[in-house]
C-alpha cells in the first residue's frame, strides 16, 4: 500500500545514506569530545536550556519533577 501523497523526493531518499554516515561521525566525535571534557572537568552545565532533550519520556519525568516541586 502506498501512502505517499507528496513529492517522492528520490534524491532525498538516496542521499540519506551519506547524510547518516556523516551524522554518525559527527555524533561519535561529539561524544568523544564530551568525554574528554568530562575527564578534564570542563563540561558546561546545560540546565538553563530553553528546550528539552530529544527524548520524550525523559523530558516527561523532568516535567513531573518540576511541577511537583
Amino acid at each position: 500500500m502506498n501512502f505517499l501523497y507528496f513529492d517522492p523526493a528520490i534524491g532525498a531518499m538516496i542521499v540519506q545514506a551519506i547524510v547518516a554516515a556523516v551524522a554518525g561521525v559527527l555524533l561519535f566525535s561529539k561524544n568523544l569530545l564530551f568525554k574528554i571534557k568530562l575527564f578534564l572537568g570542563i563540561v558546561k552545565t546545560t540546565d538553563k536550556d530553553l528546550f528539552d532533550d530529544i527524548d520524550i519520556e525523559k523530558s516527561d519525568i523532568e516535567n513531573k519533577k518540576s511541577s511537583d516541586s
Partner: peptide, 18 residues
Amino acid sequence: PFLYTNIHLLAKFENKHS
C-alpha cells in the same frame, strides 16, 4: 559537514533525480 550534507548535497541529489 552538517550543512554540506543536509543542504548542499541534498539539493544536488534532488536536482539530479528530479
